[in-house]
Design a protein around this nucleic acid. Sequence first.
DNA 1: GAAATTTGACCAAG
DNA 2: CTTGGTCAAATTTC
Length: 237
Amino acid sequence: MEHRGNREQGTLISELIQGMELAKQLRVHLDTASSAESMDLLVQKILSSYEKALLILQFSRPMSMGQPQQNVGATSGVPESPLSINGSPRSDDLDKDNQDTRDVSKKRKMLPRWTDHVRVTSENLLEGTHDDGYSWRKYGQKDILGAKYPRSYYRCTYRHTQDCWATKQVQKSDEDPTIFEITYRGTHTCVHGNQPVPPPASPEKQEYKLTNLNTNNNQQLQSQAGTLGGRREASQR
DNA sequence: GAAATTTGACCAAG
DNA sequence: CTTGGTCAAATTTC
């Protein structure tokens, strides 16, 4: 019964250790006079690690949970961050060399690392609060055991074009169809002038975005009513 | 006609 | 053997 608990525990420990290491690095950065950007990035990674750890704790709960998202561990008020992804969802690999080098022997591979995990409510989707700034192409959908709704798999549209191997998974929450769980995997490398830096962006982009969102809303609603809430993006023709 | 989604099948890891 | 992830062909939409 606790088989899977073992494995998840390993992952959990790894995540916690990683968080600690990152925190150490951050301290060094604090001592030194580093740029605020790198420190911010570190903070983001740390938060991501702990968030994931908490999620694992939540998930590996036997069946005594009446409500997810309740008081998980005895941790202090760790921001579970129900929604809203302040900051940038983008997580570039640090200067550290990533040992993510996958082999080229087997056909299929990997069980890589998760880059980020966020929850998005339908409100966010409708509002357009959630926007990676990237274009995703759906390449699969699978029913997950224990989950009521299937999980959708997306990959960057520019995988072949710009070698962007970033992928993301979107799944509807079991009991809360209004919440979408989005898991990012891999690293973004696309550069087609659509970087996640909207604030002081040119007015052109804003206009484009608004129009796109409007069109998207309609289609998204249709998609949701039809089958699962899929995502539709990209508009290049 | 091109690009993206859909759906089923295949493959790998636990 | 089961579950999860990706590919590939068919289909759809603009």
